[in-house]
Nucleic acid binder design. Structure first.
Length: 193
DNA sequence: TCAGCGATTAACT
DNA sequence: GTTAATCGCTGAA
């Protein structure tokens, strides 16, 4: 069942990041459906978070997507090469987002591997935010896409994890964020990594 | 218009 | 665990 607006509009982005573990991201591109079970997320906690693009209330053409009401995709290009997929949360004007870092194949595994130019699935095939977007056929032009439409959406398939399966760590690649780089905002399912 | 830069990846030891 | 490659968008002028 597709996640509803109230899931995305909560005000605790860190809690939502944890709740997204086990949910399933779907995309439909060229009539091909692909989907992955989320096994790793990071929270980006609005204007007080130095690691967030919206730190200090920064609002530009790129970051304005994060200020929309929860339930849209914020996708941006990193290193000129990688499209990174985020889920926008909270209400309008609060720029919270959750980065999807890893998935397990759920539907359309062959298509996902083809997009990654791989023949054989390994557990690392879709570990890393750039790989997730590539496998699901997502690129930065889809930023701002509603998660209630037919291009990208997230479903609850009843998959959940016990608290002891969930590992909490600081976020990756945000050393420039000073003390905020140490915040325990990354969640992952240890047995899949 | 254009210099700067990055929420990474792949390929190493 | 480490390090180098990389390139087109972003944002300010």
């Amino acid at each position: 069942m597709k996640l509803k607006s109230d899931f995305y509009c909560g005000d605790d982005v860190v809690a939502i990041a944890q709740l997204l573990l086990g949910k399933v991201v779907f995309t439909c591109k060229n009539n091909l459906i692909t989907a992955g079970i989320i096994t790793e997320t990071e929270a980006y906690n609005g204007i007080t978070d130095r690691a967030s693009h919206a730190f200090g209330g920064k609002r530009t053409s790129r970051t304005s997507v994060m200020y929309q009401q929860g339930g849209v995709a914020y996708i941006y290009l990193c290193y000129g090469v990688h499209s990174l997929l985020n889920v926008v949360t909270n209400v309008e004007n609060i720029p919270h987002a959750v980065l999807i870092r890893s998935v397990l194949p759920f539907e359309g595994e062959e298509t996902m591997l083809q997009r990654r130019k791989q023949i054989i699935y390994t557990k690392k095939s879709f570990h890393g935010p750039g790989k997730v977007s590539q496998a699901l056929g997502i690129d930065y032009s889809l930023t701002g896409t509603s998660l209630f439409g037919n291009k990208i959406w997230i479903e609850d398939k009843g998959i959940s994890f016990r608290p002891e399966q969930i590992k909490v760590t600081p976020r990756i690649g945000v050393d420039y964020a000073g003390s905020d780089a140490l915040l325990p905002y990354r969640f992952l399912i240890d047995e899949f990594h």
